[in-house]
Design a binder for these strands. Structure first.
Lengths: 337, 337
DNA sequence: GTGAAAGCGCTAACAT
DNA sequence: ATGTTAGCGCTTTCAC
């Protein structure tokens, strides 16, 4: 019933293998036959069966996309957008993405995604924080993998990361340009690589601008990075009685909490304190004044990860190292821009 | 290298086909051999190759999950959770979900998801509003499909829907029990089936309780259902000068907008106006007082849809009709509970 | 109840 | 540059 490579071959007047060669863009096919075959493919609206291909070629045509359940269910569609970037990019390679979540509390020896058991993926993308054990499991299986928005300390891994330091530098530079010298920093979950990088970026950027890094202006004791954490981190700052005219938050949600706290303490934003966030989430436009922030191209993260993975699959080589995705400062009301 | 059905057969001392029969839970296998085979499968940690299966059985082992890009990228992870419910349930059937988005502005003749072209899915789930043309396209292909959280007027389709009427009835009943008689309703995007049902439910529930349905208490002219729309819809209500002690919103985001509007107009929630939403989104816990609302089990919607689809695939029959997923009123501060 | 054998649609040597 | 052939790993008649 369905049209197969055989029909195409017949119509084009060539053999099965020639059609296959054309299909897979292999060399050694004369331009003439290639055209003939492609014409036949088009005429017959032929689409190769994935399962047949997979069986014959030992490649699945699938990429596994793994994230933790809590990441995926978050209100902010950060990882959703990364996934979308990946899925969209995968279309160009004619690959499918198998999305699955693992428990946040995954531990080695626990249940692993089915596609790993069935050897049904040619590569794996991990998005966000994942258990090291799972990553190692995939590596042991010999399946190429790429991490997005997360990294481990000692890695022979491929990681696609936000350029946190650069983003913070842009923010600091801008604040300084606007005359700010006393710039506070709030953060939470400080052992998360991204957050940690942002704090490092803050210190570096200040030093570069010859501004003394005052530890009293740094509040990073909260365990998480939610709005309430931003509120409390700011409270701590205020309790210390140390003066500041600008506040950099490790992310937008904390920045929003910070604005609430500042306002509740009678401080006007941006008149008395300018506030800058990081991530550019939608909620930043739901506060008044709108939040100045560092925009992260989430789709781009996903797309780059997919491309990296495809490269690894196609060349059969492991590509190490971190790739930083550039970010951009978005100026809005919270810094009086 | 990888263990195949052949290895299992050898180890169990049976033929290939017997292993296959066991694998597929077919009858006519003695309990004894079944045990032997299963033991061998376990010993060898055998997992059948999907592609081999798919090629031989003409079934893909995949389900397509289609939603519009804007639905998927929404801040509120409503459809994300539906997807999660589907994916989780699919594991029980050993099926994979191929998630893809289509443009909101999809029109017939436009590009369709690849898995449809490649015949790489055995069934399709549509989540949320989709173009009728796409649904019809899938039907013409003879691929079973199920809609979740959306329906068309004249359908020979299978739809899994929120029990909107029942949800509203619970809310109204509760409000009446608390002494409210003048209950307003705000809504947006009124031609959306869910919203429309909620309005219908509102009218029905009032009638059942012998309360006159005052059109002046109904404000449903907004085009969308966001917070701002809730704000404006409430404003219109107030401008009319009509009195009410309770307000039912067609969804939580509008309810949150309503609370803002009421408060801005000097009305206390819940003292002067009780507010009830619908959906039970997280943001309902981020407002003060916390929002009383109707909880929708999103994962359940997805799981039921998957089960329905599997039934259609396994029986080969199309199952028509709408299935309503029960909802539950969650009492919180906005109704003084 | 179990086994033998054909074949699903394609890829990848190997020939030519 | 193109054709021939042998599988990939499983399911599925059809015998026995």
């Amino acid at each position: 019933m369905a049209v197969t490579i055989k029909d195409v071959a017949k119509r084009a007047g060539v053999s099965l293998s020639t059609v296959s060669l054309v299909l897979n863009n292999k060399q050694n096919v004369s331009e003439e036959t290639r055209l003939k075959v492609n014409q036949a493919i088009e005429d017959l609206k032929f689409h190769p069966r994935r399962h047949a291909r997979g069986l014959a070629s030992k490649r699945s045509g699938n990429i596994g996309f793994i994230l933790t359940d809590d990441h995926f269910s978050r209100a902010e569609p950060f990882y959703t957008k990364i996934f979308l970037g990946t899925e969209f990019e995968a279309r160009k390679f004619d690959y499918y993405i198998l999305l699955t979540t693992v428990s946040k509390t995954f531990k080695s020896g626990g249940p692993v995604p089915r596609f790993l058991l069935e050897a049904n993926v040619d590569g794996v993308i991990f998005a966000g924080k994942v258990a090291l054990g799972l990553v190692e499991h995939v590596q042991k299986l010999g399946i190429p993998c790429v991490l997005v928005d997360y990294a481990f300390k000692n890695d022979g891994l491929s990681c696609i990361l936000i350029d946190n330091v650069q983003g913070i530098r842009q923010a600091i530079t801008h604040l300084i340009k606007k005359g700010h010298r006393k710039i506070a920093f709030i953060g939470g979950e400080i052992n998360h690589p991204s957050i940690n990088d942002r704090l490092l970026g803050y210190k570096e950027a200040l030093k570069e601008n010859h501004i003394y890094v005052d530890e009293a202006l740094i509040s990073t004791d909260e365990l998480y990075t939610g709005r309430n954490d931003g509120f409390r981190a700011t409270e701590r700052l205020l309790e210390r009685g140390v003066e500041f005219t600008a506040l950099l938050a490790s992310n937008d949600t904390m920045a929003i909490g910070a604005i609430q706290c500042l306002r509740q303490n009678g401080l006007d934003v941006p008149a008395q304190v300018a506030v800058v966030g990081f991530d550019d989430i939608e909620a930043g436009l739901h506060v008044e004044p709108h939040l100045t922030t560092v925009r992260v191209e989430k789709e781009e993260l996903g797309a780059v990860a997919l491309r990296r993975l495809m490269e690894m699959i196609e060349t059969g080589r492991v590509i190490y190292g971190r790739t930083l995705i550039p970010v951009r400062l978005i100026l809005r009301g919270s810094t009086n821009d």
